[in-house]
Each structure stands twice: as C-alpha cells, then as structure tokens.
C-alpha cells in the first residue's frame, strides 16, 4: 500500500490512535502514568458511545452514567452473589444496559431537546438512587469492593495490564464507531441531527434509529463502567451519579461533538486536568470551572474540530 493510500484510508485515525496506544508507554516514567492512561481510555470508550448519540444523532443524555453504573455493579455483584466469572458479568452487564436502554429509550426518545435532557437525567438519578438504597446488594452509599478480573488463569492486576486492556478495547470501540459513520445507519443518524422531518420523508424510521444509537451508546458506557469498577477494585453509587453524567457530556463537548478523535481528547483533558490541578489544593475546583468555561468560550466547536478548522484555513 502506498503512503498516499494509507493516509486516505478510512481507518487512518484508528491506525494513528493504535500507534499512540503502543508508543505512549515508552515515555511513561512510572506505573502512575499507566494508571492515568488506563483511565483515559476507559472514559474515552464511554465518551465515543455518548458522542454517537449526542454528536451524530443530536440527542442529549444527562443520564449516561446510569449505564456505566449498571456495567460497574454487574461485575461487582455478579461474581459475589452468583459466583459468575467477571468477564461473563461484563457481557451480561452490557446486555442488561442495552436492554434497559431499549426499554427506557422507546418512550423518552420521543422527547426533544431540554425535555429529553431532563428525562435522561431522571433515568440516571433513578439508577443512582436504587444503587444507593439497595444496600443488601450494593453496599449502599459506601459502595462495595469488586473482585479482580480473572481471564482463565491470569488474574489481571496492575495498571500496565489495564492500560493494554483499556487501550485495545478503546481502539476496537473507535473502529466500530468509524464503521458506523460510514454506513447507512451513520448517514441516517447524521441526517436526523439536522432535520428529523426530512429524514422521515426520505424513509428513515427516526424513532428506531434513535433507539438503535441509544442502545449502542449505552453498551459502550456499560463496558466502560465495568472496566472502571474492575480497575479501581471498588465502586460507589457516585459512579452512576449526575456529576459523572455531566462529566461525560463535558468530555464529548470539550473534545468536539461529532468528532470521534475528539472523544479521546476530551476524555484525556478531563481525566488529566484534575490530576494536575491537585497541586493547587483548595483552588482545584475553581480552576477546573474556569478552564471548562474558557475552553467552551474560546473553542466552542470543541478542541479537535477547532484545531482542524485552523489547519484547514492555514493550508489554504
């Protein structure tokens, strides 16, 4: 394959990201960096899914942490209560999330704009409240510990192992998202964002497409939630809470709505930033707020699309 053909390849962004995943650890001075890297990829996975829903189909969700919560508690409760292997619980959690998304999405995806926002917000809160109050299963507000992931004889521990697992899964999720965009479903979602009426008149079953992407994005979030729980070894209902949902939305918007690469950038910024800001102690929150505002005011298209626009102008 010539260089030209490679650069024009549909999967070029994914190849570049895969290269980054592989090369990055060469510059990691300590295990702590693997930990941050793993967190970035885990969040980025959820954000890619949410971006399919928000950035492409134009449907807001302020309750996506609810699906992360379902994924997280699946790998926490499953092994303890039913003795099921973690990986099986991860799949079961993803299926459960998809099913819940299907059931919840059918009625609420008819809502538009801010009404959809408040409905999804309500859904997320419901999940968090159930997780908080069903202490017999979930350990209540203090949360519960999560058994380590075991794959056959290999007990996965250590940040570097999780870095590779999360990185690989992210690349897979990324490729699936790219695939979707270059397909009838992807074009239909894109069309729905701009004009539902025109989409319907062209034969697109808008309700069904919205439901499809809602289920897909819930599945992404669920897998990310399972990973986060297995990686941290402990979870609390906060992992399904409103602030987590907002964080996911912020990552989407910051990286760039509709930019799949942006999902990684948005996740990276909002995972790394608080780590850096801890050196400012009590000013941490105020600075975080200021930086979020600043990004949104000055790069309102999101980081990646804004940079891409600058490049495009510069090449002209």
């Amino acid at each position: 394959m010539s260089l030209r053909a490679l650069l024009d390849n549909r999967l070029m962004p994914a190849i570049a990201i895969a290269a980054i995943v592989i090369i990055l650890p060469l510059f990691f001075p300590s295990a702590y960096y693997y930990r941050i890297g793993a967190l970035v990829f885990i969040f980025a996975l959820a954000v890619v899914g949410l971006n399919l829903l928000m950035g492409f189909a134009g449907q807001v969700s302020l309750g996506h942490a609810g699906f992360m919560g379902i994924g997280a508690y699946s790998v926490a409760i499953g092994p303890v209560a039913f003795g099921a292997p973690s990986w099986l619980c991860l799949f079961a959690g993803a299926i459960l999330s998809g099913t819940v998304a299907f059931a919840v999405g059918r009625p609420i995806l008819r809502l538009k704009g801010h009404y959809l926002a408040v409905a999804t917000l309500g859904f997320g809160l419901l999940v968090a409240i159930v997780l908080t109050n069903e202490a017999g299963w979930t350990g209540g507000p203090d949360g519960m510990s999560v058994p380590k992931l075991a794959l056959f004889e290999w007990r996965v521990r250590g940040s570097d192992a999780w870095y590779w697992i999360a990185g690989t899964t992210f690349v897979v999720g990324f490729v699936l998202a790219l695939n979707l965009m270059d397909s009838p479903t992807g074009r239909a979602l894109h069309a729905i964002h701009d004009s539902e009426i025109a989409a319907r008149v062209l034969g697109i079953d808008v309700a069904r497409k919205k439901l499809t992407v809602f289920v897909i994005s819930a599945t992404y979030a669920s897998v990310a939630g399972s990973y986060l729980a297995l990686f941290n070894g402990h979870i609390t209902p906060d992992s399904a809470g409103f602030l987590r949902s907002i964080e996911l939305v912020a990552m989407v918007v910051l990286g760039g709505m509709g930019s799949i690469v942006g999902s990684l950038v948005g996740a990276a910024v909002l995972v790394v930033l608080p780590q850096v800001l801890t050196t400012f102690h009590e000013y941490e929150q105020a600075l975080l707020g200021l930086i979020v505002m600043g990004f949104m005011i000055f790069l309102r298209q999101g980081i990646v699309p804004s940079i891409a626009a600058v490049f495009a102008r510069w090449r002209k």
Partner: peptide, 27 residues
C-alpha cells in the same frame, strides 16, 4: 462572549460557572 454558540456549549459554560462558583465558595 460565547454568543451564537450551540445550546449544549452554553449549558456547559453555565456548568463550568457553577463548578467555579462552588470552588470559590469553599475557599
């Protein structure tokens, strides 16, 4: 300063502002 930005971006700005105000309040 963000006039004309999309509704989601404007909401994010107000959320940023609320994080900021909370941060200032605790100081």
């Amino acid at each position: 300063p963000a006039r004309g930005a999309s509704p989601v971006v404007l909401i994010m700005i107000t959320i940023g502002a609320s994080i900021f105000l909370r941060g200032i309040a605790q100081i």
